[in-house]
Design a binder for these strands. Structure first.
Lengths: 197, 197
DNA sequence: CCATTTTCTTATCTTATGTAAACGTTTTCC
DNA sequence: GGAAAACGTTTACATAAGATAAGAAAATGG
């Protein structure tokens, strides 16, 4: 029903954090579900308690906060990334985030509650949970340090020359501007300035 | 050697995350050390691999990044808060952060490596590690959402009316301005504007 | 207790950014 | 294939923030 190769993608992503025996891995299998999202479709809506997390098999997504009608993009998801309103799942509060497909997307997901159940059943899964949370915290910390210590003009080239440049090229610039916390107009000015150098 | 009541403060902070048997708790005891810091003293220096974490028994501290000679404060620590360059410990890289005492401080600390050892020895401690990382991630996420979706003028009153206002009143405003990501001059203008309302 | 340092405010000047609008180009999708 | 929408850039203008300097008030420390 779910393609073996899709399951293999998820498995290898999890094994990057922690080794699992076949028995431990099998505990997750019954919870898996496959999703397809069309471009522009929202997977998780603000205010909603979507309690699933998963992995992006193909396509890319973004998540954003909405405030006073304005969207603030804070993350892009690409293939092989874990995706979900993890904080909403942790706090069991409605998501502040909206997660949207920027292109057609294929996802493999499972309920966060199932993962929590695995924490009780198997220490190895609890370790996975710890390492996942630590990984998330490291990413958030780096992101915040960048936001606070660098200007948009400095952050933009860093974003472009990171390990995602090929994918970012396919993302419309107004999303990137939004991610940088500036307007498309301002990003256009920055690009012009950078070209002149 | 270490006062019982100081140990009790740490114990209760940890028990807020996870219940521990007496035996499990005792595993941490031999690693504990007491520190005193004078006002202005730095506990962790940027570039250094200080691998301890701990709890603030009394006093308050801040941590900041340094870039181009400018400091960017990203956190204040108060009594009963865990303190440390947690990300540096997790990644085992030199700290990007400097942690400084804003007043005379009393700390109770232990090596992060000891905690990691406890992860191996006792599943309950591993659970503590997971919950601590999740707690950290939640805090970082909220902080970042605030940074991105609110202006300094909105963030300042929220900071003041949070659960820390009494302590924040004792912290010089240029640190708070720095935390908000603005100059002291700008904060002064914001304060004036808010008073006029 | 007085000199020094720190803290906070105010004023001026400059610069960067957002808003709004216009325009050409590209992409999307009936 | 062609109309409509989305996208990226540019301009003009208003606004907000940073830099800098100066001064008053408060805290600190010898």
């Amino acid at each position: 029903m779910i393609a073996d190769q899709d399951i293999a993608v998820l498995k290898s992503a999890i094994l990057r954090f922690v080794p699992l025996t076949a028995e431990e891995w099998d505990l997750l299998l019954p919870a898996l579900a496959y999703h397809h999202l069309s471009k522009g479709e929202k997977w998780i809506n603000e205010g909603q308690k979507e309690q699933r997390m998963g992995i992006v098999l193909s396509g890319n997504m973004r998540h954003y906060y909405t405030r006073d009608g304005a969207e603030k993009t804070t993350y892009f998801y690409f293939e092989n990334h874990f995706v979900g309103s993890y904080i909403s799942a942790l706090t069991n509060k409605p998501s502040q985030l909206t997660i949207e497909a920027l292109t057609d997307c294929r996802l493999l997901t499972f309920p966060y509650a199932h993962l929590q159940m695995l924490y009780e059943k198997a220490p190895r899964w609890e370790r996975f949970g710890r390492l996942l949370a630590e990984y998330l915290a490291i990413g958030l910390e780096e992101r915040m340090a960048g936001l606070l210590t660098m200007s948009p003009e400095e952050r933009y080239p860093e974003l472009l020359h990171g390990n995602k440049q090929k994918i970012l090229e396919r993302i419309p610039q107004h999303y990137i501007a939004n991610y940088l916390g500036i307007t498309p107009v301002s990003l256009s000015r920055i690009r012009k300035r950078l070209l002149e150098k």
